[in-house]
């Protein structure tokens, strides 16, 4: 009977057969694992951003109407982007800070393309809340920039983290000036 043949101890060619059989077992198991991974992959990948989601990934913003000292919030990839027309004073305070004082050291110059225009993703780098500071009536925190109420992160006039649990500065997205008063984000 079939069962007894395959399991017969010390049967015909037991010794030579064992290594060959071990190899076949391993090869089968490896092929099975690769196959399982290949089946799993489309499912896992289907959860990543879809093509239309990726296609929506750029926007154009006209800055002409934003007065000095004013901020606007636009939506990009479902996230708020803060655009602030900074005052000369804000620029000066941001540039006066020694980089060594910063938790996430970065100069103000590295964070802007034109000094008066600060563009950044308005998402707290801690756990993703939207910090206040866009409206004049908002609490702007100890450094007169933005303040995240969720767990108390303070950002300065360059959007850099100064105090609280957030690990890094507010993210500056990829953007470029398409003319003097318009930008394309993404």
């Amino acid at each position: 009977m079939a069962e007894t043949v395959s399991s017969a101890p010390g049967g015909h060619g037991a010794h030579a057969g064992e290594t060959r059989r071990d190899f076949l077992y391993l090869a089968t198991a490896a092929a099975g694992a690769v196959g399982a991974a290949a089946v799993a992959w489309p499912f896992i990948a289907s959860m990543n951003p879809a093509a239309d989601t990726l296609a929506l990934a750029t926007i154009d913003v006209d800055l002409a109407a934003i007065q000095v000292g004013q901020s606007i919030t636009v939506t990009w990839r479902g996230k708020p982007v803060f655009i602030r027309h900074r005052t000369a004073e804000e620029i000066a305070t941001a540039r006066a800070v020694p980089v060594s004082d910063l938790k996430d050291p970065q100069t103000d110059e590295a964070r802007v393309q034109k000094a008066q225009w600060l563009v950044m993703v308005g998402i707290c780098t801690h756990l993703g809340c939207v910090p206040g500071g866009q409206k004049t009536s908002d609490v702007k925190g100890d450094y007169s920039g933005w303040f995240c109420p969720c767990h108390g992160s303070h950002y300065d006039t360059s959007g850099r983290i100064r105090k609280g649990p957030a690990p890094t500065n507010l993210l500056v997205p990829d953007y470029r000036f398409t003319n003097d008063t318009s930008i394309r984000i993404g």
């Binding site: 896992i44 990543n48 951003p49 879809a50 989601t53 990839r77 479902g78 996230k79």
Partner: peptide
């Protein structure tokens, strides 16, 4: 996180899954 969201923030894809 992007994979969990299916996008760049909590959005329609996230709600559906």
């Amino acid at each position: 996180v992007t994979w969990l969201w299916g996008g760049f923030s909590v959005d329609n894809a996230t709600l559906n899954r």
